[in-house]
Design a protein around this nucleic acid. Structure first.
Lengths: 191, 191
DNA sequence: CTCATTTATTAATATACCTTATTTTTTTTA
DNA sequence: TAAAAAAAATAAGGTATATTAATAAATGAG
């Protein structure tokens, strides 16, 4: 189990001694992921939060008419889950699917709760994680409300180049909230 | 200074003894707000997170072309700030303006940091606040991506009736990401 | 390697939503 | 209470984006 990345991720925000590190690692389950595998499906209980070690994942909502809306992508060093459903033990609203094969470390809600008890400063870590996530989502909302599609696309490739050149045009369009045909035409017009 | 609401807000998630309550209240500054007053303007440093005791506030981004996009409304028992800029000591991206007169309790970044040190479980409180905020924003993104304007409007009045019947049509349209004219026409077609 | 499937491109037509302008209604203020 | 200002409604015409369909390119399964 490759644990360097996740420990450095946590230690960006809180300091841990060796004992605490061991304690955390004990709660993690590794999973290797093949392309297109689902690690979560709409309607299933969402019992894990997942840390990406390698590969690329995508969370998306499929509405009753079959329209696919990408909620987020996750690359190495990112956490991904259906947060609302994970925290409240509810059926997932989104699918999470593997875009590029890799591996994740899974932390269950039960074990996360134990971590809060055993290592109280883990609350601080998770607080900062949630702060960052909230701020990112808020920025995305502002941009979705105030920018036309072409400029949202420009922002996307500027802010997430490592994602932009690994996902399909269709997935990018789904993240931007436009059709693949329209994104294709936007691209065509770029010089 | 009316402190009942904020204490009950905090005690929804963590328990506090009388000493801790006093300690927290000590860090708060009350401010009475007249209608249309700005408590934050784009470009100013955002040094406070604000708890709404009474009244109604609105955070919005004004883009270079003058288009107004509502980021959030805040009613009593809600917290409001420009989170990214508050946390990082940066110039605000949004304006926060009083829609309905009332009063707020302000907590500075410095005092919040002291609270984390003095009462470590305040990290848990803020973690939960951020979790809730993140989940709300994520849901809003999903809805913005997957629903047409009329259905987003229906959701808004269903989920936030106490806000919907206090803000103007113009402000509602700005929250939904459509023009007031188009919202008016949506309303006209409702039976 | 090859056929089947998915993805991307292109183009014509359609529609959700915007812009501008005018009128009516509501709110504010003097 | 009247005048002024702001908000809402209505309508015509315009544009960004969607839909449908057909073709080409890329990817994947056997």
């Amino acid at each position: 189990m490759n644990t360097e990345l996740i420990l450095s991720n946590i230690c960006k925000y809180i300091s841990l001694n060796d004992e605490e590190k061991e304690h955390i690692l004990h709660f993690l389950e590794e999973e290797h992921l093949t392309k297109n595998k689902f690690i979560l499906r709409q309607g299933e209980l969402c019992n894990y939060i997942n840390f990406v070690n390698t590969g690329l994942l995508r969370a998306y909502y499929l509405n009753p008419e079959g329209k696919d809306s990408t909620v987020m992508f996750a690359v190495p060093d990112w956490w991904i889950t259906d947060m609302h459903c994970f925290l409240n033990g509810l059926p997932a609203m989104v699918n999470i699917q593997v875009v590029e094969a890799g591996s994740i470390l899974k932390l269950s809600r039960e074990n996360l709760d134990k971590l809060y008890d055993d290592i109280p400063k883990f609350n601080k870590f998770f607080r900062i994680l949630m702060q960052n996530a909230y701020c990112r989502e808020q920025l995305r909302i502002i941009q979705n409300l105030s920018l036309p599609a072409k400029e949202r696309y420009d922002q996307f490739i500027k802010n997430y180049p490592q994602i932009a050149n690994k996902v399909t045009l269709k997935q990018t369009a789904s993240y931007l909230g436009i059709t693949p045909e329209f994104l294709s035409s936007i691209r065509g017009k770029m010089d």
